[in-house]
């Protein structure tokens, strides 16, 4: 609650109880992570001899590939989930916004689960 000054008393007591600052900050943190992880991902794919099934699987199976891939999935999905939320808050109101936010959450979590499970299945699975 701050140190008793007027500013201290209201700090973090906005409409979202401080959630806005957290939203803004996490979007920046995930943006920095995305910058490095997406560059790593693109350069890694370019350096692969071929993008066919065999060479991609061999690549994805390595721990130092599977782990950054899982991190990339988390940061990319988290980042776009926050970005789309801002768009929905700008353009939709009332019950439409609630439904759209629910749909966004389902979309994000279902697809993230699929992506993470797929990486783990390839990385932890026995060699085919």
């Amino acid at each position: 609650m701050g140190n008793g000054t007027q500013l201290g008393k209201v700090r973090g007591l906005g409409a979202a109880g401080g959630g806005i600052v957290h939203h803004w900050w996490v979007q920046r943190v995930t943006a920095v992570a995305n910058l490095f992880l997406v560059l790593w991902f693109v350069l890694s794919l370019v350096r692969l001899p071929s993008l066919d099934y065999g060479s991609t699987i061999l690549w994805l199976r390595q721990p130092l590939v599977a782990v950054p891939m899982c991190l990339l999935i988390v940061t990319v999905f988290w980042h776009f989930r926050l970005g789309v939320q801002v768009m929905l808050e700008d353009y939709l109101h009332g019950s439409k916004r609630v439904i759209a936010m629910l749909a966004l959450n389902f979309y994000t979590f279902a697809l993230a689960a699929l992506a993470l499970f797929s990486v783990l299945k390839v990385a932890l699975g026995t060699a085919a």
Binding site: T56, L60, L111, L114, A115, S118, V122, G125
Partner: peptide, 13 residues
Amino acid sequence: AVLIFAWWLAALA
């Protein structure tokens, strides 16, 4: 892109 990316991973798996 995210949809194609997830599909690519699911296809690999």
